[in-house]
Simulated scan of single mutants.
Amino acid sequence: MSFLWAILAGLVIGVLAKLVVPGRQPIPLWLTILLGIVGGLIGNALAGVFGVRDTGGIDWIRHIFQIGAAAVLIALVSPLWSRGRA
């Protein structure tokens, strides 16, 4: 069941990260989900380093770290993907 949650979280994080990155990102949905999952893991690690991983209520700062990390990954991978497909 945690595998399905990781895919769902990766989808949400990846789509939100694509909205943050300016311009068009011509990457497929599966790559968006994969980068969202990796960004979520990196964001969790960063939140742990800064001591904001588990707080009372909604962990907004952790989610910002997750989306930010996924946005950086999408910004880095998107030009490589489009260059490789041309």
Rank of each mutant, 00 (worst) to 15 (best):
L29Y: 08
P26F: 03
A47P: 08
G36N: 13
I7C: 10
G56A: 15
A45P: 01
R85G: 00
I42Y: 00
R53P: 00
G51K: 15
A86C: 05
L41Y: 15
H63W: 12
G14S: 04
A75M: 04
L76F: 12
I33S: 01
I27H: 03
V20S: 01
V52Q: 05
V52E: 10
G36W: 08
L80N: 02
Q66E: 15
I61H: 01
G14D: 09
P79D: 10
G68P: 05
A69R: 08
A70Y: 12
I61R: 01
G51R: 03
W60C: 02
R85T: 07
G48E: 13
G68L: 08
G57H: 15
D54E: 14
L11N: 02
V77S: 03
V38A: 09
G68S: 14
F50M: 04
G51E: 14
G57D: 11
G48H: 04
A45F: 13
G57S: 12
Q66L: 01
T55A: 06
W81C: 02
G56L: 09
G68Y: 05
V21G: 04
F65S: 06
F50K: 06
I58S: 10
L31R: 10
L80R: 12
A71N: 11
L19W: 10
R62S: 15
A9I: 12
V49P: 00
P28L: 08
A6E: 04
N44R: 09
L29G: 01
F50N: 11
A45N: 06
P22Q: 11
I37P: 00
S2C: 04
I61A: 03
G56D: 14
G48N: 15
L41I: 07
L29A: 04
T55R: 15
G14Q: 12
G48Y: 07
W30V: 04
R53V: 00
A75F: 13
A86K: 12
I13M: 06
A9E: 15
L16P: 02
L73A: 12
S82E: 14
S82R: 15
I64K: 01
L73I: 05
I33A: 10
M1K: 06
L34D: 08
A71G: 07
A86M: 08
F65T: 00
L35A: 09
S82V: 13
L76P: 01
L46Y: 01
A6N: 10
L8G: 05
R85P: 02
I61P: 00
S78L: 07
P28C: 09
G39A: 13
K18L: 10
G84W: 13
A9C: 05
V15E: 13
G10V: 12
F50V: 13
A9K: 15
V12A: 14
W81V: 12
S2R: 10
W5R: 14
A6K: 08
S78P: 08
M1G: 08
V49F: 11
D54S: 10
Q66Y: 04
L4T: 06
P79K: 07
T55Q: 14
A45E: 13
A6D: 14
P79C: 07
R24L: 09
R53H: 01
V77P: 02
S2Y: 15
L4M: 02
I42D: 14
V20R: 00
I64R: 04
Q66R: 15
